[in-house]
Design a protein around this nucleic acid. Structure first.
Lengths: 200, 200
DNA sequence: GTACGGTGACAACGACCGTTTCCAGTTGGA
DNA sequence: TCCAACTGGAAACGGTCGTTGTCACCGTAC
């Protein structure tokens, strides 16, 4: 019988399970962040996490469940980083956009694996297609709703979609090194696109 | 011994081999155009082409070789469609851009599988990563070189990359139905972005 | 001190993949 | 007519995957 309160090596069962779960998610980020979806096998994740397969299925129903957990974990950390950057800035649209973009780009630089997971993995990994085809459209809808009324509905859709495409490809190119420009110039360019679209 | 000149059912060996090769490529377009890279197995391609595995390896060294051939075949048809549309149009930049974009969009509508192969498959399929990470940068470089001198080098890179990202994501969204706008408006928007970037 | 829950390593299973090989049948020129 | 080339179907091989099961060990609570 399982007793969650019984201590073991100074920790409870629930604690140890949570730690192992986090180890598996970290291993997932490490592997999925490498860009090669096929490399993220259950065996590889367990080897990276220094755990055995039995513990994998202790925390996740199947491989897809880990993929989703990894993605959600990274997405949440990005959300927090962006929100934190936006709280202590004057509430002008341009300043807010700059803060958000800067925070996101800094996240990418600080840990490129996270950028890969966020931008590339949802396209590459079938298990994330559904969830991933949720975040970009959500982002698109957010921009769509901020656009001025001087555009008609069709123009707003087109502008929002173009913006999201431009930003994601910009970041992806920056990530993989094919876009060789100073960080500040890229942030400037991204912010300028956002501001230009928002002005009537 | 193989005798390529001997006729068989009214055709030569070389003819029949070419036909089978084309059947396999068509099957590859059909499957790869479905968007699910993992569905493109050698067995599935052969079943779709109504041929057996032996004929697969008669025309292609391995699975990757078929993938490349499929991609090149589609890319070539797109190149031809675009060039044909540009020859009989007045040589003003805007008219040329409009002709090219219109031709490409019409190709997408005429056969969405080709659009999927061109825009999605290079990201999804490892065998095409190298080749696919060649076409978009080539396109980016083309735009980059057309941009006016009033931009500095960094600005040209940023603008070209943003444009390519915006256009591809626009087309992908249009392809999968998530961008519900009239065809003409999308073409207009795409052309407008190109023209706006080119004007100093 | 001992019994038991937690642990770790790893074999085993069935499925699918890419690739090769075999074989029985058909076709057309010598 | 006979034989060699070509055809079509399918089995077979070696490998990897996701997933489950087994078994010996070890630390802790009683």
């Amino acid at each position: 019988m399982t007793n969650a309160t019984r201590t073991w090596a100074g920790t409870t069962l629930a604690d140890r399970r949570a730690i192992r779960r986090q180890q598996l998610i970290d291993a997932g980020i490490e592997l999925l962040g490498g860009g090669d979806t096929a490399a993220v096998t259950v065996r590889a994740v367990c080897r990276t996490a220094k755990l055995t397969e039995r513990y994998f299925y202790e925390s996740f129903a199947d491989r897809d469940a880990l993929m989703l957990a990894v993605y959600e974990h990274v997405a949440e950390s990005a959300r927090q980083a962006i929100l934190n950057a936006m709280v202590d800035v004057e509430p002008r649209p341009e300043a807010l956009a700059r803060a958000a973009v800067t925070a996101f780009v800094e996240l990418l630089i600080d840990d490129p694996r996270k950028g890969t997971v966020l931008l590339l993995a949802p396209i590459t990994e079938p298990a994330l297609n559904k969830r991933g085809s949720e975040l970009l459209p959500t982002f698109t809808a957010m921009i769509h709703d901020q656009l001025p009324d001087s555009y008609d509905e069709t123009d707003r859709k087109l502008t929002a979609t173009s913006l999201v495409g431009a930003l994601t490809y910009l970041f992806i190119s920056y990530l993989d090194g094919s876009l060789d420009v100073p960080r500040d110039r890229m942030i400037d360019h991204a912010v300028r696109m956002l501001v230009a679209a928002a002005s009537p």
